[in-house]
Design a binder for these strands. Structure first.
Length: 227
DNA sequence: TACCAGGTGACTG
DNA sequence: CAGTCACATGGT
């Protein structure tokens, strides 16, 4: 019986989680050390391959642009030239400086003070920063503040859509609500689940999917059709 | 060579 | 509110 499009239940989400965990876990995400690198990486990786982000982060270290204070003080054009390998470097230089300005001016230079905000308040405060959208805000809430906010990205949408899981809409919140409603509100689970979806999408569930190698093949609309 | 990669904000109808 | 576009590099 081919899977049909439908709203999933908790058991469906946990089945996928367990299959992916057996295949790839534990992931120990995020690929970066410490709050500063995670936040800088989250901004630099917007619509960009992580390979290019690593080059830009390396350049920032070499240039001693490795604190929010330093980013706040550096000239924007110089920062742009340093992060050039990450692409969109003019926009991203502005984004890094906008974020640094908030940390320095609104939180006295203390990132910890910002991270201490209640999860939903923190998320709203992050969204108010130019250049921080929903995914980047959730990256920071989950992977820096360690508070449960499920991250939705292009990989997550692709896998959910191919499985045939109906979310009730195409907006970010529609996908996020599906996970949030059906899973226990646990930061460690959200962390690992998103990391596993990332691993699976980048290795198997690519734009051009490798369904013959997929551990979800028998429960996936796309995978079933491919057999 | 053309396509792809962990988005976001501005603008349009 | 949904669709479209600019933003840019490095790998395959």
């Amino acid at each position: 019986m081919p899977p049909k499009p439908r709203k999933p239940k908790n058991a469906d989400l946990m089945d996928v989680y367990q299959r992916l965990y057996r295949e790839y876990g534990p992931r120990n995400w995020w690929p970066g050390e410490g709050p500063f690198e995670i936040i800088a990486g989250a901004i630099l990786t917007q619509n960009t391959a992580w390979r290019n982000v690593r080059l830009a982060l390396h350049n920032m270290r070499e240039a001693r642009l490795w604190s929010f204070q330093a980013l706040h003080e550096v000239e924007k054009d110089r920062l742009a030239s340093v992060i050039r390998p990450s692409g969109y470097y003019n926009q991203k230089a502005r984004k890094l400086k906008e974020f640094a300005a908030v940390v320095v001016n609104d939180f006295g230079g203390s990132l910890s003070a910002m991270l201490a905000l209640d999860a939903t308040v923190l998320r709203d405060r992050l969204l108010a920063v130019w250049g921080i959208g929903e995914e980047t805000a959730d990256d920071i809430v989950l992977y820096v503040a360690n508070k449960p906010s499920f991250v939705i990205d292009a990989y997550t949408r692709r896998i959910v859509d191919r499985l045939g899981w109906q979310t009730g809409g195409s907006a970010y919140a529609d996908y996020q609500n599906m996970f949030t409603r059906l899973l226990p509100k646990d930061a460690q689970l959200f962390n690992e689940y998103h990391a596993l979806l990332d691993a699976h999408a980048s290795r198997v569930c690519k734009k051009k999917p490798l369904c013959s190698e997929c551990t979800l093949g028998d429960i996936c609309m796309t995978g079933y059709a491919a057999q």
